[in-house]
């Protein structure tokens, strides 16, 4: 991966609020053209990471770069290539939608009124309606459209679908896919909803406890993290543990392990416990729960860009 291809990079990024360390040394590199789903439980530091990336918060330590420039001192050109949709859309409620779009557009040199009009039509947002009278979902759509009006190379969305119904969410995600078809665009979006990530994202970054627990391709993650059921004739002792497993649970004659295939060999496991072994595929939600709810071994997993 060439360095010039990296649109987003952090290095040992720390951020503390009043002695509470929210980010604990984040290392992350995202190359151009990826759609990255940023996953994490509440309070895991997703929004703080995004704000540090955008220069809205000053990191306590470490580096953060966006589009090749320090996040804290983004130039006019860099910001012109950047789009951001916050968790709660900050719109001016007294303006009609079209006026609002024109108002925002006046800040950008390469604003496309045609593109905005097209998105408004596609997402069924009435341009004559007052912003304050839009539903929450429509406001979220409008905020996204306004972030897309200047055709940004990097689009960062902080939980963009939290307030959308399933149908609107699906439509929204579909639009993101269309946007990313052009390999020039990179999208980073945080969310709690795993199915959306599975549907859209090419890569995932899982945050836990202020750290990146995993960053890599979604398919690779699913391929690596598996559940293993070990079965034997007599019961497993209740205290049975597997040191390298992400998560383990004893159910009588069965021992259920969540394992990283790269770190644990199935044959070794079957041999160690003298048991029959069965491999079960996990969906992203189960993987996320195992990673974020499991013991410390889970955090030792390394993604392709995590150092």
């Amino acid at each position: 991966m060439s360095p010039s291809n990296i649109v987003l990079r952090t290095e040992r990024l720390h951020k503390s609020f009043e002695n509470q360390e929210v980010l604990q040394g984040i290392n992350l590199e995202i190359p151009q053209g990826q759609i990255v789903g940023l996953l994490g439980a509440n309070g895991s530091g997703k929004t703080t990471l995004i704000k540090c990336l955008l220069g809205l918060l000053k990191p306590s330590a470490g580096k953060s770069e966006l589009l090749g420039e320090p996040s804290w001192d983004l130039s006019v050109k860099a910001k012109d290539r950047l789009g951001y949709v916050p968790q709660e859309p900050a719109l001016l409620p007294w303006m009609p939608v079209q006026s609002h779009a024109n108002y925002v557009g006046a800040f950008y040199e390469h604003w496309s009124r045609d593109r905005v009009s097209r998105w408004l039509k596609v997402w069924d947002v009435d341009p004559k309606k007052q912003v304050g009278k839009l539903s929450v979902g429509q406001r979220q759509k409008l905020a996204t459209i306004l972030a897309l009006g200047h055709d940004p190379e990097l689009l960062i969305l902080d939980e963009p679908v939290a307030s959308l119904d399933p149908a609107a969410r699906r439509q929204f995600m579909q639009s993101l896919i269309e946007l990313a078809e052009d390999e020039r665009h990179t999208v980073l979006f945080s969310t709690h909803i795993m199915s959306d990530v599975e549907r859209v994202a090419s890569h995932v970054a899982i945050m836990h406890g202020g750290e990146i627990a995993y960053y890599g391709e979604l398919d690779q993650l699913k391929d690596r993290i598996k559940r293993v059921r070990l079965t034997r004739d007599e019961d497993f002792p209740a205290t049975t543990e597997c040191p390298l497993a992400i998560h383990s649970r004893v159910e009588g004659r069965h021992l259920l392990l969540s394992v990283d295939r790269d770190r644990l060999s199935y044959d070794e496991l079957a041999e160690r416990y003298s048991a029959k072994l069965e491999v079960i595929d996990l969906n992203l939600e189960e993987i996320f729960l195992d990673l974020c709810g499991g013991h410390e071994a889970a955090f030792a997993i390394g993604g392709e860009s995590t150092r």
Binding site: W94, Y103, G132, K133
Partner: peptide, 23 residues
């Protein structure tokens, strides 16, 4: 999501036409 936010209009919009704004 089914309820609308209360719309607070600007107390006045005397600063010209928003539709003619340019960069």
């Amino acid at each position: 999501q089914n309820t609308s936010q209360q719309a607070y209009p600007a107390m006045m919009r005397p600063l010209g036409d928003y539709d003619r704004l340019t960069w």
